[in-house]
Amino acid sequence: MAALASLNTVVGALFLLLTFLLMVSRQIQSVLRAFVGQSLLLVLSTVLLAILHHSAELAVVALITVAAKVIVIPGVLTRTLGQELRARREIESAVNVPVSLLLMLGLTVLAFFLAAPLLGPPAARAAVNLPIGLAALLIGVYTLAIRREAVAQVLSLMAIDNGVFFAGVAITTSSAIVEAAAGLEGVMVVLVVAILTRTIAQHLGSTEVSSLRQLGEGVPR
């Protein structure tokens, strides 16, 4: 049991590492690979927690996560956005990588700082997952704000989602119906946003969403 718990700690560390990688990678392909890896680690942590707590519900969650995040969502992205994913251009970002890394480190510290008071002795099972999930959430929101590329933004959104569930599986479980609804809904989100991205690419000739700045209170049009 103790071995499983420490294994979960390793998984948590790797999850955080991949989150960093996902957020600073400049190639869309490697961002996608990092996302799949991050999802796999989420599954692994869920399985470990399921064994640790003898929870059948968590095992179901792990199955749903494999289906939705490891198989269907990357599949949907590759099918709808094949061209955009293969494009060999660099992802533009408003802040350069070293500064971003420093800020992300700061956000990670903040996450541990915020989570620490919540983790009393009865909450041991959440000790690893809660702060790391919160860190992934904060890092993801930050990256979403600085990335200028539609596909990269979609993957950041999904990574935030992974972070939330990484914390979620450690602190609560719902019935299988609820989990399945959440999984299905995640797939729908990706499908709709991917189609919207493709439409934008067709109309604009690129997925540089930062060039979308027609609307606002500037000069009267």
């Binding site: 539609a150 709709v192 946003v193 439409t199 934008i200 604009l204 979308l212």
Partner: peptide, 9 residues
């Protein structure tokens, strides 16, 4: 499209 993108994200 711009409005829809901002709305979605």
């Amino acid at each position: 499209l711009e409005a829809a993108w901002k709305y979605a994200v």
